[in-house]
């Protein structure tokens, strides 16, 4: 029998921008104060709605990049060419401005310390995160939450990004994180280089024999090839959860 769904209406809430900063050349970190926010689990996302003066509205989804322990909501927004919402959020929205937001949304691509305590059998299994580019966003919420709660669950992150300047949430990444650079590799770089493939997954992620719970987040081609390689390595398909950005002009 299916679990009982949370039958709670998601209403639009005013969200006031309190801070915005360039996290990389293309990604901004936006910090919102959202009175009435009901809380969330690491991995969940929100819908954002912008309304023009003539009544035109646009909605997009963004993963939450902050853990539930933090009062404000952080979004890592990548500025996309022709992206009417992302270019407004990263280019025009200023501290003090209001937008609308509702959530939290999604209950599958989530990890929490409390759930691991409640379900000891599942909670014993390590967690492997695999990110491509801005797909690291929900994992920053998971890693930060893991640290703040001093969770005993083993957690690792393999993070693929184009070059050093595009590494997001740098201050949060610790020894649990392996970074691979796919384009420009600086002299003296000690991490991995090149795209995530079967050999790198074998070298840098939890082995199938340890039955990890695996979360993959990134662009479609990245998620597709990574998930296929993980299955080929012997991981159970049902242990792999995926969040994809699609090929759309905005993350979806």
């Amino acid at each position: 029998m299916a679990r009982a769904a949370v039958q709670r209406r998601l209403t639009w809430l005013p969200a006031r921008l309190v801070a915005t900063s360039a996290e990389s050349p293309r990604v901004h970190r936006l910090v919102f104060d959202v009175p009435g926010w009901s809380g969330h689990l690491p991995g969940q996302h929100v819908d954002v709605r912008l309304t023009a003066e003539d009544g035109y509205t646009a909605e997009r989804s963004y993963s939450l990049a902050s853990p539930p322990e933090v009062g404000e909501l952080h979004l890592l927004v990548e500025r996309l060419e022709d992206g009417e919402v992302s270019s407004y959020l990263t280019g025009e929205l200023s501290p003090g401005d209001l937008i609308e937001l509702r959530g939290p949304i999604g209950g599958y691509f989530v990890w929490s310390a409390a759930a691991d305590q409640d379900d000891r059998d599942t909670g014993r299994r390590p967690v492997q995160l695999v990110a491509g580019g801005a797909g690291v966003s929900p994992f920053t919420a998971m890693l930060d939450h893991h640290r703040r709660r001093e969770s005993p669950t083993p957690m690792q992150l393999l993070y693929s990004t184009r070059d050093e300047s595009e590494i997001l949430a740098r201050g949060l990444l610790g020894p649990e994180t392996t970074i691979t650079l796919t384009r420009d590799v600086p002299v003296g770089w000690a991490g991995e280089t090149g795209r995530v493939d079967a050999a790198m997954l074998l070298r840098c992620t939890v082995k199938p024999g340890d039955s990890p719970r695996i979360f993959v987040c990134g662009p479609t081609a990245f998620a597709e090839s990574t998930a296929t390689a993980l299955v080929d390595l012997g991981h159970e398909p049902t242990s792999i959860r995926i969040e994809r950005f699609g090929e759309s002009k905005e993350p979806s």
Binding site: W12, P14, R49, L50, T51, A52, E53, D54, Y56, T57, A58, E84, Y88, E92, L93, D97, L98, I99, E100
Partner: peptide, 8 residues
């Protein structure tokens, strides 16, 4: 709804 200054 909340209007987004300059949006659109």
């Amino acid at each position: 709804s909340v209007l987004s200054r300059g949006f659109g």
